[in-house]
């Protein structure tokens, strides 16, 4: 499904990594690790198509993601360092805008249910600025619940989450893989990933 061929990443005039190959198929998790500055985030942004590889290509079902374009973006969800949550909007409003950006239009009940699952029952209509850092991350994560994407790209998703939220997210990833989805994940926290087939990719070694 997802393949990286001889990828090279350059930041400024520094080479982050070179000659990187990997292959990921349905139901598999790619766990990317390595020290700070080894290019984990750059690799994940490359996989989304935000950054072009300096050399090499990323293939989705055998086609270069840069030529697939919008159709690839419809099958992928990216969860990065930034939450993408607006202070002035409520949880429901934030989630609705994000889902519509991803090309979906869930009903109010679905939105409320998704937020409830992430432990935000009763907080759905409050503006996000009164929520804590962790709660805002939860609002942002709730779009994974409604997403129909095959490929999840998660950059440090456990940041600012408490133990229960971490367990919840792990469950979500497990279910996603069990449904035949793909996931790419980076994390610094010690979290066991007990999901199906896990492939590991070490950067900066």
């Amino acid at each position: 499904m997802l393949r990286g061929n001889a990828l090279v990443a350059v930041r400024g005039d520094r080479r982050l990594f070179a000659g990187l190959d990997f292959a990921l198929d349905a139901g598999e998790l790619l766990y990317v690790n390595g020290p700070n500055g080894s290019g984990k985030t750059t690799l994940l942004r490359m996989l989304c198509g935000l950054v072009a590889p300096a050399e090499g290509a990323i293939l989705w079902n055998g086609e270069d993601i840069r030529s697939v374009g919008d159709a690839y973006r419809a099958e992928m969800v990216y969860f990065g360092h930034l939450a993408g949550v607006k202070d002035e909007l409520s949880g429901v409003e934030n989630l609705r805008v994000n889902c519509r950006l991803a090309g979906q239009d869930p009903s109010d009940e679905e939105l409320t249910r998704a937020l409830g699952t992430l432990g935000l029952r009763g907080l759905e209509t409050l503006p996000a600025k009164v929520l804590s850092q962790g709660q805002r991350r939860r609002v942002s994560l709730s779009r994974l619940l409604l997403s129909r994407a095959h490929l999840w790209i998660l950059d440090e998703p456990y940041t600012a989450l408490d133990r229960s939220a971490v367990e919840l997210l792990q469950g979500l990833i497990r279910d996603h893989l069990a449904r035949g989805g793909l996931a790419v994940l980076t994390t610094h926290q010690q979290v066991e990933i007990d999901a199906g087939i896990t492939k590991e990719l070490r950067l900066g070694s």
């Binding site: 989304c48 198509g49 935000l50 919008d70 159709a71 973006r73 419809a74 992928m76 990216y78 990065g80 360092h81 930034l82 939450a83 993408g84 949550v85 607006k86 805008v97 994000n98 950006l101 991803a102 090309g103």
Partner: peptide
């Protein structure tokens, strides 16, 4: 700053 722009770039629209 809050990352919404990234999501816009990744939107299938």
């Amino acid at each position: 700053i809050d990352g919404t722009l990234e999501q816009m770039l990744l939107s299938p629209q």
